[in-house]
């Protein structure tokens, strides 16, 4: 199978490219990046060809593309790739607004290509294990969730609202809303949020707390932020506690770590040894294309988690709950 990559603006592009290189019978045939220096360097690292012209890149004979551009360019690249009949794995969030997301889903449907959204957390072994426990009924009925996704300020285009569409709350809410929807098979109907910016001197949000309610009355709290500084032992966290009528289970996707102590600036460091969820995502996408099946994480999944994140901004602005 032949795969191309569109933009290395998002840092996940590197681990996705690593994933492609690890898979047998999958070839990274080219990298499109308008940032010539970045594109050329990536092409050299992954022993492939760099293209600075999108149309020329899309003329390549390849089955699929992985899009890791700035968020506001997802639509343009998805539309062009779909029209060129390439299957697509698009970095999250699907888009910066619902109208773009809907258009992306429709164009992929019209051109009969797969649109998968990159939610690697779905491929974390402990997260999957809890999903299995839920599906087997081991937790009973779910009544509430408690989730966190906190990390470091990524800087660059992430803190430019026009390119990113939102700060920490957009960046770190979509993942956990996706997991909650996946665990519950229900949609969020109400969002209440407080969003602010104070961890960094930036003109975009870096902290937010959300309270959600699902169709069936399940309630959830979510903590999204870029509150982790470089001296903190790890980049951040992804946790979800599922409160069920039979038992409560807490899962921490990055719990599997060794603790190392040194006398440097960062005296304690957590070194993760759990499964590589980015590789799991890439492996799944390639299999999905190979088998021609419905993607594990659809464009619609991307749309619904984006909808909740955008509602959080509106709720914080209006200081009232938003009904979806």
């Amino acid at each position: 199978m032949k795969v191309g990559m569109m933009s290395f603006a998002h840092m996940h592009a590197y681990s996705y490219a690593d994933g492609i290189k690890r898979l047998p019978n999958v070839e990274l045939v080219g990298i499109f990046d308008e940032n010539v220096e970045r594109g050329q360097e990536a092409a050299k690292t992954y022993n492939t060809v760099h293209f600075s012209d999108q149309a020329e890149f899309l003329e390549l004979e390849m089955d699929a593309v992985i899009i890791c551009s700035e968020n506001n360019r997802h639509k343009e690249m998805v539309v062009n790739a779909a029209k060129a009949k390439k299957h697509i794995l698009c970095e999250k969030p699907i888009a910066t607004n619902l109208s773009d997301a809907n258009e992306m889903i429709q164009v992929c449907k019209d051109n009969a290509v797969i649109l998968q959204i990159a939610y690697p957390v779905r491929f974390s072994s402990p997260i999957q294990q809890v999903k299995q426990m839920i599906d087997k009924g081991e937790l009973g009925d779910i009544i509430a969730f408690r989730t966190t996704n906190r990390g470091q300020n990524p800087g660059g285009w992430f803190i430019d609202e026009e390119q990113s569409g939102g700060g920490a709350v957009l960046d770190h809410t979509v993942h956990m809303v996706d997991i909650m929807r996946w665990y519950l098979n229900e949609e969020v109907t109400e969002v209440m949020a407080i969003i602010d910016s104070y961890f960094h001197d930036i003109a975009i949000d870096d902290a937010g707390l959300l309270t959600l309610e699902f169709e069936n009355g399940v309630i959830a709290s979510h903590d999204a932020s870029w509150s982790r500084f470089t001296e903190y032992p790890t980049w951040g966290d992804v946790t979800i506690e599922v409160i069920g009528t039979k038992q409560t289970v807490k899962v921490d996707a990055f719990k599997e770590h060794i603790r190392t102590f040194s006398s440097g600036e960062k005296s304690l460091e957590h070194v993760f040894y759990g499964n590589d969820m980015d590789f799991g995502l890439i492996h799944d996408f390639i299999n999905c294309v190979k088998e021609g099946r419905e993607p594990s994480v659809t464009g619609y999944d991307g749309l619904k988690s984006l909808e909740v994140s955008l509602a959080a901004y509106e709720s914080s602005k209006l200081k009232k709950p938003i009904r979806l």
């Binding site: 209440m192 309630i219 709290s221």
Partner: peptide, 13 residues
């Protein structure tokens, strides 16, 4: 926000 009080455990956010 509170869960339905007929469900156990009861949870409040």
């Amino acid at each position: 926000k509170q869960t339905n009080q007929i469900m156990i455990p009861e949870h409040t956010i």
